[in-house]
């Protein structure tokens, strides 16, 4: 090997790295706080009129007076009740029908086109019809959420059943598992990841429908509160209501994330 002068020996240039996001837990809250501070500053300095965009502190005060008056719980419980009942029933029925479509040729051939036709209808358009059918009260709102959650869940579940590894099903049959056990122990757990991501989608659809339905006709509910605030040009209350919706959405996403982590813990 020929002699190399020391100054000709240099480290190999590093070209890897990047393209791999790593967690920065402080960044999210920091951006959020900066946004709030800029907004508050702009409002205090009189750059925007409080009527157009009230300061965050004004919205917080509106929220606090809502808490103090005890009406927060009234609105929130009305909304949550509709959301929980409508979404739960819709999701349960959707899983059942999706399983049928995934498992039985007749259900697939018969219901598939109906589901495809009804899925794209924004369910809020059916609210007047639901009011005629189920009355102006809770029935029509729950029905809107039910159908809103039903179709995405059917589609997600049926897709999940289709994606279950057929060799696992053959394996179950080769060990003589009865049909019911094949469905409960192989098909359903195999479809669970798809069902859960369907639940994420159907929950966000349900929140949208909830607010829309409450804006069309409800005494209590976060949607009704926001609409009333808008009608009275009380933009501080309006922002407070919207913040409530954000918290509601985040909570639902958090709960579903938790359920996913627990139910799919085998994925590691």
């Amino acid at each position: 090997m020929p002699d190399v002068r020391p100054q000709d020996r240099r480290p190999v240039p590093f070209r890897g790295g990047g393209f791999r996001p790593h967690p920065l837990p402080w960044a999210g809250p920091a951006v959020f706080l900066v946004l709030l501070a800029v907004w508050e500053g702009a409002a205090r300095a009189g750059l925007v009129s409080p009527l157009v965009l009230p300061a965050p502190s004004a919205a917080a005060a509106a929220l606090w007076s809502l808490v103090e008056s005890g009406r927060l719980w009234l609105h929130l419980s009305a909304s949550l009740q509709r959301l929980v009942i409508g979404w739960t029933l819709g999701t349960a029925a959707g899983i059942g029908l999706g399983l049928c479509i995934g498992l039985f040729s007749l259900a697939r051939a018969g219901l598939g086109p109906v589901v495809a036709a009804l899925f794209p209808i924004p369910k809020i358009a059916l609210l007047p019809l639901f009011i005629i059918w189920f009355g102006i009260g809770e029935g029509s709102k729950v029905a809107t959420l039910f159908f809103g959650a039903l179709f995405p869940t059917i589609i997600a579940t049926a897709g999940g059943v289709d994606s279950v590894d057929r060799t696992l099903i053959r394996m179950g049959q080769s060990f003589g598992l009865p049909w019911r056990d094949v469905v409960l122990k192989i098909v359903l757990p195999g479809a669970l990841p798809a069902i859960l991501s369907g639940a994420r989608i159907s929950a966000s659809i349900a929140i949208i429908l909830l607010v829309a339905a409450e804006m069309i006709g409800a005494e209590y509910g976060v949607g009704a509160y926001i609409l009333l605030a808008g009608n009275m040009m009380a933009t501080d209350q309006l922002i407070a209501g919207v913040a409530l919706l954000s918290v509601m959405g985040l909570t639902v996403a958090f709960l579903i994330g938790r359920a996913e982590r627990w139910l799919l813990r085998w994925r590691g």
């Binding site: 590894d165 060799t167 696992l168 080769s174 060990f175 003589g176 598992l177 009865p178 122990k185 669970l192």
Partner: peptide, 28 residues
């Protein structure tokens, strides 16, 4: 189970543990 398979790609249920996968063949 007189005729029992061993598959090329193992055909284990990913959501069951080793013992759970063996149990699957016995539970019914």
């Amino acid at each position: 189970n007189p005729l029992t398979y061993v598959f090329q790609d193992f055909a284990l249920l990913p959501w069951r543990t080793v013992a759970g996968n063996v149990a699957l063949a016995l539970e019914h």
